[in-house]
Each structure stands twice: as structure tokens, then as C-alpha cells.
Nucleic acid binder design. Structure first.
Lengths: 340, 340
DNA sequence: CCGGTTTACGAAAACGATTTCGTAAATAAA
DNA sequence: TTTATTTACGAAATCGTTTTCGTAAACCGG
């Protein structure tokens, strides 16, 4: 069971290694008859070229890396699917790395890519990430990088985003139109630009409606589940409890649902909730949850397409450095007004 | 900005390439002083070894492949997380491939692995897969393979599974104990052993209770959404409509919920539902869904650990060829009996 | 028939790391 | 002091492809 390679083929055919290699690549230097002989034997012996040798020689691996904070998540898993679909179709292989929201892990992972392991990188930043020196370092070494959803502001790297600010604005206006007058904003502790954008939109909507923007209604939940419960319960049962919530993170909406059940706060009668979320089951929740749904699959596809264009050096100038794919607001029962 | 490699280091230090290589591997052949010099310069110049060269020479890539039918799925995405966690900790890299339930794609993907691209493979079979010649071919070439959840019966390859048969049995008994007398079983069209196992458990429970096993209650839904609706609606609104359902696939439970809402069939009063599912939001559904929850993360971890043991040739004999990690039945409102 | 161009192939040098040997010097054993 | 052994390093082969050259032979036009 010896492994079969170019040398095996060459000697079996009485040809040189270089001729066989060129024949397999359908080079014009090789006569049609020879090509046929080579192709046939390669098929018979089930020859598969060694990718490591090829990558070493060509300095191209046909591998990309996807670096994300989490995978067990409706947004990221769908995005991966979009990326993988394009990669598979283009003949690329996809390495996946999880940062678990840790800057240190993110740095370690990216550092390894200096080696030329991958041809390009798609990354969605960790919640801890406050600078992207480790990312730009790769760009400077000539390795294409595409930022994706959780981007960094103030960089010229290619980015794929959705309209977070506008969505935050629309979600808030959605609540205002449904007679909410004390609207809260839930986020988790991170330094992400998307969170800021969403919050900016929320504030803009309030100001447009000449409503007060109250800091005590803008909750940043800590990482600890127990603390989260205490803080959010405090808000929900306080004297001036909100009658509407914009959840900038799916997880906070779920927490809200659980607490409202426990605290007997009826949704949407007493509290209306809308969440940034990609849950497929949003429509089956009790009550069905109004969502801002991000185009995860499309964003993955766009990121991958952009990356492959960069990798293959195609019309780099013609590509927009930033692409925005809009989210969709899907109203459901959790923000429904009582019929009068 | 020339790329830095062993030769760069060697000439900068006045040493040979082989010495530098050995020093970096902390070989005993190298004196402590020389090692220090090498390490320091490597750190200063931020040397990262070229993995393709290394893989070529060592015939070991420190890369594994994960081949699954789908990723935008609560089970598989969580399993990936378990796999990646172990891989990262062991210093391995993870390639991910989606088969989209297609045998052809599965074969194409696995065929490429003959090249030595990866050190080992974790695979969960596509729904179309009825033989695993393409898998055993790899094993014969000396590439370790671990089957995972969707296994093939009648192979001696290492497998990680959960107790599907028993879970099907327990789910059905759960319904029987709650006074269901006409219990249906929902599946989708595939040739998977896990589906068969679950159904076997379902049948066993019925027989144990001396209940009739009726073929019209065992529904295999087609791929088309429209047809699914017609068939399932037919069952739910028929003269002898079931009063309990075991959904062997999450998707069928969701469909049931949607149809019941449309058809005004109250759950659990008129129909109790329990589903194999890893939905985090099961407890938030309307009504909250009783589930058989698979230990996705643990199964991923176990698959990865097993694979690494095989790859590194550790105590191959001592490893069980099949590991079963039990699922958990979580009763919720969808199977609750009315208080009397 | 003769210089010039194709055509079709092979030799050999990469790519960057690992590993097997060989060997001078240093050390230990006899 | 002589022999044996260790220590610490370098030369060179190797992994399997790709790619650049070099070159016989065939082909061409005039």
C-alpha cells in the first residue's frame, strides 16, 4: 500500500516527473497523447496530489481561516454556512477557530497565520477586542483579511456589516409607534462597535421623538448569569419600570422572557420586547418574538466572495471597502398592541 | 519585508539550518547556550515555522477534518464547539466541511483526504448515506476516522453515539404515562441508523404497553415543506388523530407547533409533543417543549479525544470502539397532564 | 538545403522544514 | 598515554510539487 505520487506515475509511464506534473495541469507544453496517458493512469491509480507539497512550492494553500467568537449561535453558525458554501464552490478549504470572546486567544490564533498557513482570513472580533494591531499586522504581511459583522471602526480593511445603527433606530421607533414611553436598551459588556451603533440608533430615535434618554434605562449586563438576573429584575420591577425593551443581544431577550415569566410580567401587554436575533424559533416563542434579523448567510457569502477576490488579486480597486447588507425587522406578538 | 525562516535565523547566528531546527525543538544534541541564542533571536524576529514544509516532511499536519451534514443546527454547532475546544487545547487545527446531506458531496470531500491533508477525520454521515466504502477506504490507508452521532451500523470503526433507542423508548413511555393512547412517530426521509434506533425504541415501548403499533401513525415526512404540511395536517385532523407525538427530528416538532397553531389544536391538552432536540429556546416555546436533549458538546469532545488518541497512536487497544453518552429527557409543558 | 521557430519533453533547482549521518573536539575509561 | 565514548554541531538527503531552463527533434519558409 505505498502512497502514489508523481514519481510513481512518472516511472510507471516512462516519463519524467515534470512532464507528468505539467500533463496533470493540462499544460500546452505536453502533447495530447501524453496527456491522455497520464490522465488515465492517474485516474486508475486514484492519484491525489499532496497539498502540503503543493502549498509549499506555490506559496498558496487554498485554505482560508474563519475566526469567530462563538459557533453555537444562530448568527455565526449560519454565517459559517454562507462562507463554507462559497469556499466549497471555489475549491477552497475552511479552517475554523473560536476565540471565546478572548482577545488573547484571538491574538494567538492570528499570530500563527504569519506562517502562510492560510491564503486569507475572515474574522469577527471578540467582545474584548479594543485594538486590531494583530489584524493589521497580517495585512501588512500581504495576507488578505476581511472583517465581518463585529468590525473595528477606524480601519480601512474590507468590512461586511449590516445596518446596525439604522436597525437600532427602527426597532426603537417600532416601540414608540406602539405607544411605549419608557424604552430600555439591553446590551452585554463588550467593546464592540455594533453594540455602540445599535445604541446610537436607539438614542437617535428617542431624541427624534423628543423623549428623554435616561442612563438607567440603558443596561449593560455583566457576564455572570446570577448578576444579570439581579440587575435586570431590578429594572423590570422598579418604580419606573420600562414598557418597552430593545435587546441588542439575543441572550438578553431570552433572559427577559425568563424573568418576565417568573415575575409575572405579561408580554406584550405590560412590556413590549424586540430583539436583535437570528433565532429560527422566534416565531414559536411564548409570545412570538419581534426581531431584527441579520442576513447572516448573505454576510458570510459576501465576506467569502470578497476575500477570494482579494486572494486572487482580482480588481482590488473596484471592490468596495465596506459592504452593508441590511437587516430585517420582523414584527411579532411581543410588540403587538392590544386591540382597542 | 522578506519572510523569515530557518535559513534566515541560521545565517544571522552563524549556525547551520539543522542546528537551528534542532535548537527550536529543544533537542538534546544542542548545547544550552546555543539554544538560548536561537530562542532569543527567534522571538525577536517573530519566527513562525512554515506548516506546509513541516507537514510535508513529517507526514503529519496537525490538522483534522470535521465532516457534517449541516452547521446551522443546534446539535452540530454545539458539537463543533466541543471538537474545536479539544483541538485547540491539543494544538490541532480544524477543517470543516458540509455535505448538505448529499452522499456525492461526502464522497468527494473524503476522497481528497487520501492526500494526507489531514491527520484524522470526524464524520457524521449524510442522510443519504447507505454505505461507507468511502470511509473505510480512508481507514485502510491508515487515516483514523471517528464516526459521530450519525453512524453506520455494521462497522468496527470507532463511534461516539447517544442512547437513541433507549431515548425513543423513554420518550414514548413518557407519553404513555401521561395517558396518551394514540402515539405517533415523526421522522424525515433518511437512511440513518439513529432514526431507526429511535423508532425501534418507540415500538418497543408500545409493545411493552400492549398497544397496537400502527403504520399510519409512523410518519416519514418528505423534503418539500409544502408536502410535509399536507401529510402532517392530514394526520392531525384525521378521524383517529394522535393524542401524542414523538418527533425524532427537531424540525418536525417545529412544524407540528406551527400546524397546531394554525389548526387550533391545543398543546398539550389535545396533543402532547416530545421532541429530540437541542434547542436552547425549548423552554421558551409556546408551550415549552419537552425534549430529549443530546449531549452535543460532550459528544464532540469525546469524538475529538478519541481521534487524537488514534492519531497519536496511544493505547489503541485500550480504547472502546464505541462510546455511548446518554441523552437527557427534559419534561416541559408540551407533555404536561391537566391537573385533575 | 539551411537558418529559424515550434513542439515536447527532461534535468534540476526551488519551497522550508526535519532527520539521518558523519565528524572534530572534548571527555572519560583503561 | 591510549582507546572509547560523549558532546555539539554541520552536510546533505528527503518530503512531493512546481517551475524555470535547456535541448533534441520536428517543422517551416525561402
Amino acid at each position: 500500500m505505498q502512497t502514489i505520487n508523481l514519481k510513481t506515475l512518472a516511472s510507471a509511464l516512462g516519463l519524467s516527473v515534470s512532464t507528468v506534473s505539467k500533463a496533470l495541469q493540462d499544460s500546452h507544453e505536453i502533447s495530447p497523447e501524453t496527456k491522455q496517458r497520464v490522465w488515465q493512469l492517474a485516474r486508475e491509480l486514484d492519484y491525489v496530489p499532496n497539498p502540503h507539497a503543493s502549498s509549499l512550492r506555490r506559496k498558496r494553500s487554498k485554505i482560508i481561516a474563519v475566526v469567530i467568537p462563538e459557533v453555537a449561535d444562530s448568527f455565526f453558525s449560519l454565517a459559517i454556512k454562507g462562507i463554507e458554501a462559497v469556499a466549497q464552490q471555489k475549491g477552497y478549504h475552511t479552517l475554523i477557530y473560536l476565540t471565546y470572546e478572548s482577545l488573547t486567544k484571538e491574538q494567538t490564533i492570528l499570530h500563527d497565520f504569519q506562517s502562510g498557513r492560510v491564503d486569507g482570513i475572515i474574522i469577527s472580533l471578540s467582545g474584548q477586542t479594543t485594538h486590531i494591531d494583530h489584524v493589521t499586522a497580517l495585512e501588512r504581511k500581504g495576507i488578505p483579511v476581511v472583517l465581518f459583522d463585529r468590525i473595528f471602526e477606524g480601519t480601512t480593511l474590507p468590512r461586511i456589516i449590516t445596518n446596525d445603527r439604522e436597525s437600532g433606530y427602527l426597532a426603537t421607533r417600532h416601540l414608540l409607534q406602539r405607544q411605549c414611553r419608557r424604552i430600555g436598551f439591553l446590551s452585554v459588556s463588550d467593546s464592540l462597535s455594533i453594540t455602540k451603533q445599535r445604541q446610537t440608533g436607539y438614542i437617535a430615535a428617542l431624541e427624534e421623538a423628543t423623549m428623554p434618554v435616561l442612563p438607567e434605562y440603558m443596561l449593560t449586563l455583566p457576564d455572570e448569569r446570577a448578576e444579570q438576573e439581579i440587575i435586570l429584575s431590578g429594572l423590570l420591577t422598579g418604580p419606573d419600570a420600562p414598557d418597552g425593551l430593545v435587546a441588542s443581544v439575543e441572550k438578553t431577550a431570552i433572559l427577559t422572557y425568563q424573568l418576565c415569566e417568573k415575575l409575572c410580567i405579561p408580554i406584550p401587554e405590560q412590556l413590549k420586547v424586540i430583539s436583535f436575533s437570528n433565532l429560527e424559533t422566534a416565531s414559536l416563542l411564548n409570545p412570538s418574538l419581534s426581531t431584527i434579523t441579520q442576513p447572516a448567510f448573505d454576510m458570510g457569502e459576501a465576506a467569502a466572495s470578497t476575500l477570494f477576490n482579494l486572494v486572487e488579486g482580482k480588481n482590488i480597486r473596484s471592490m468596495p471597502t465596506i459592504q452593508c447588507i441590511p437587516s430585517e425587522l420582523i414584527p411579532r406578538r411581543s410588540t403587538q398592541q392590544a386591540a382597542e
